[in-house]
Structures are given as structure tokens and as C-alpha cells.
Nucleic acid binder design. Structure first.
Lengths: 206, 206
DNA sequence: TCATAAACAGTCAGCTCTGATTGTTTATGA
DNA sequence: TCATAAACAATCAGAGCTGACTGTTTATGA
């Protein structure tokens, strides 16, 4: 009764190793991001992540031998997720055909006010005092920054220095505004400030 | 030889209990802030702080029975320190007699780019997932925010709604810009953006 | 000057987290 | 079909952290 029927019978799914590997790692990395969002960096322990992923310790350590390995991989995974989020948002705005500045700012705020951004904040702050994380984080942050600037060019047709700086300042403003959400949940307040930012941005670009 | 000469002899300093208490607690709280800046929130353990303060475990636990007590007190202490920093900066700008907007923005950037702000960031992010810290943090953050707005009124003579929002947006921008310092140290870059912000601010207020 | 309380020191048990080890199951390709 | 390697499971020792406990020193005010 140990071996499953080898011929006709239940027809077990045959999943290639590479695919199984990908799925299990994905579960662990998703669980890591989720834990960062829910309980923060210090309490994102390997046990916490293993439980969230529903995997045994052995399975976990097979893929990520140490907590550091897990977190470093989580940075890359988070970058992927944000990238997907970004592309989806960009497509949505393009379809809606909003005015470019509005589209850009709204799109960015959607990302900065979404749950994934808490994971970014946790990792960013942890990276400040952890050289290994810092190196990784920087790489992906720059890459996404470049992609955002590219989208701005695509939307507005402007690629000059002034535009670049305006995008940069927008990102900083969003970052600071997003942090405020630690204390306040008042969506109307943020909506108001976002509208005001659009005005400032237009002035900067004119 | 145990008891010191009671009459003439070496004249031991007599320090009142309240003062000794104040000093020892100050050492512990300073050490906590220093540790937050140097190694971050997760590694700011009670042992780490005790060693930095040069105090025994007993002394430490006498004043702060738990890690949580220490961190909560550190928030208040940090608020005091920032407050002092603020008042000092404000006086300096008033003496220099700079143009009000310049003075305000420069003063704020001095604070946001100073070492104390890293401690603020560490505690703020930790507070996100820790209700006890959150309550405390919010209180002092609001209080300092009010004081900053007050100074703005004092400097510019403007206390209208538009001014209030402009100050608020300035604080958000600074917060986001300060975080960038995790990755980049290029002072000239920040100086440039600060100058641009002054322009935006003037436009907002005009 | 002396009783009392606060300040301070040192040690340690208990807990949690990490990562190593060993054993079992499942998939793949020969 | 079977040997091999990857994937997964379970347990555990070691290290670090917290907070409790006990004992000593120092200051205060009666």
C-alpha cells in the first residue's frame, strides 16, 4: 500500500523539480514579506516565517540556510512584486487616459500607500545598519527608480534634467508622506496633499 | 578605613539622590539613543545599552525594569533632545537674520540630517508594529510639529491654513529626503534639492 | 550618629531564536 | 524499474536576551 498505483489508477500529478522549488521558495518569500508587514523586521524570525508559509523547518533551511539568506532573497522578491505592481498600475493609467501628471502622481501614491511599502520601509531601515542588506537594497531601489523615471518620460514626453529632479522630489515627498500613515489613517488628508503636490509639480515643470 | 573622615579630611562631594538619579537615567537614555543610531532598533538590547552607559545590570534594571520601559523613556528623552536642538537652531537663525523661508528650511534640514534623526526613524518604524511605542511617539511628534509651525508663524508672520499645509508638506519632504541618506552621502545633492524646495515653498505661499 | 531607603553590582534561570543534524519522501532520468 | 538527487520533516544543542533575585554601597533625614 505504500507505492501509489503505477499504471492506471489515481494519476498523480507530475511536477518538475524546478517548478516545485520555485513554488516553495515563493511561499517562503511571500511569508517573509507578509511577516515584515504584520509584525516588523525584528519579529520576522525564521520560525515566524516558517509557520506562515506552512512549511517545516527542514524545508525552510533547505532553501534558505540562514535568516540573512532569507532576508536578502526577500529584498529581491519584494522588488519583483513592486515591479509587477508598478507595471499593472502604469497599464491601468494608460488605459484610463488620465492627464500625465495626474496619472503619474496617483500611480505612485497607490504604490506608496499600499501594504508592500511597509515591507520596503522595514527593510530599508534595517539596511541602514546592515551592510549586506544595504548593497542589495540599493541595487533594486535604483532600478525601480529608473523604471519610474522612464514611465514619466513615456507619459509626459519630458526627459530633461528638470523633469528628472521633479520626479526625484516627488519620490521623496511620497516617501515622507507614506511614513505619516504610521500615525494617521485619514485618507482624505492624504488625497488633499496629493492634489496639492500635483500643483507644485506642474509649477516645477513649467 | 571604611568610613570617610567625617570632619575635615578629603571632603567627599555630597550629591543629592535626585541629582544622582537624574544623571544615571540620563546616561542610560543617552546610551539608548546612541545605540539606536549605531546598531539600530533590533540590536539595541538591554545589555548593549548597559555596556554603552558603563553601568551594571542592577543599576540599569533599578531604573528601567524592562526593555520596553527603557525604550518608552527613550522616546521622551529623544523628544527633549530634539526640542533643545530645535530651540538652539531657531536662535541661531534668528541671530543670523536670514530670510524667513531660507531660515526655516535650513533649520529643518539641519535637524533632519543630523544623527538624532536616525534614532527617530528607528523608533518610528518600530512603533508601527508596537502599540505602546506608537502612543508615546505620536504625542511627542505632534508636540514638536506644533512647535515647528509656531516658529514658522513667528518667522514669517503667516498663520493661515495655506501656511500650515506648506509647513506640513515641508516636513514630509524632509522626512523622505532624510531617508535617502541611508544610501547616499552626497551633501551637494541634498543642498541642491533643499534650494529647490525653498523655491517650491515660496510658490506655495505666494 | 544611625535607621532607612535608594542606588548600584553580580549572577543566573528561563525563554526564544538560530542553524546543525539526521532521517524520510518524492521526482527525475538512465 | 531503479539509482540518485532534490525536497521536505523533525529534533536538538548552543547562543543570546530578558528579567528576577540576592547582596552591597551610598545618601538622606530624623
Amino acid at each position: 500500500m505504500k507505492k501509489a498505483g503505477t499504471d492506471a489508477a489515481p494519476k498523480r500529478e507530475r511536477v518538475p523539480q524546478a517548478e516545485r522549488r520555485r513554488v516553495t521558495r515563493g511561499k517562503l518569500l511571500d511569508a517573509t514579506i507578509e511577516s515584515l508587514i504584520d509584525v516588523g523586521y525584528p519579529r520576522t524570525t525564521t520560525v515566524e516565517v516558517g509557520e506562515r508559509a506552512g512549511l517545516s523547518r527542514g524545508a525552510q533551511l533547505h532553501h534558505f540556510p540562514s535568516r540573512a539568506d532569507l532576508l536578502v532573497a526577500a529584498i529581491e522578491h519584494l522588488a519583483d512584486e513592486r515591479s509587477k505592481e508598478f507595471e499593472a498600475e502604469l497599464r491601468a493609467r494608460l488605459e484610463k487616459g488620465d492627464e500625465p501628471i495626474d496619472a503619474m502622481v496617483d500611480m505612485l501614491w497607490t504604490m506608496f500607500s499600499g501594504p508592500l511599502y511597509w515591507a520596503v520601509v522595514e527593510l530599508m531601515v534595517a539596511a541602514r545598519t546592515d551592510p549586506e542588506l544595504l548593497g542589495r537594497f540599493e541595487t533594486f531601489e535604483r532600478s525601480l527608480g529608473g523604471r519610474i523615471y522612464g514611465a514619466f518620460k513615456q507619459l509626459t514626453g519630458r526627459g530633461d534634467r528638470q523633469a528628472k529632479i521633479a520626479v526625484e522630489m516627488t519620490l521623496y515627498f511620497m516617501r515622507g508622506l507614506a511614513m505619516e500613515r504610521i500615525f494617521r489613517e485619514n485618507d482624505a488628508h492624504y488625497a488633499n496633499l496629493i492634489e496639492r503636490w500635483k500643483k507644485s509639480l506642474r509649477t516645477m515643470l513649467s
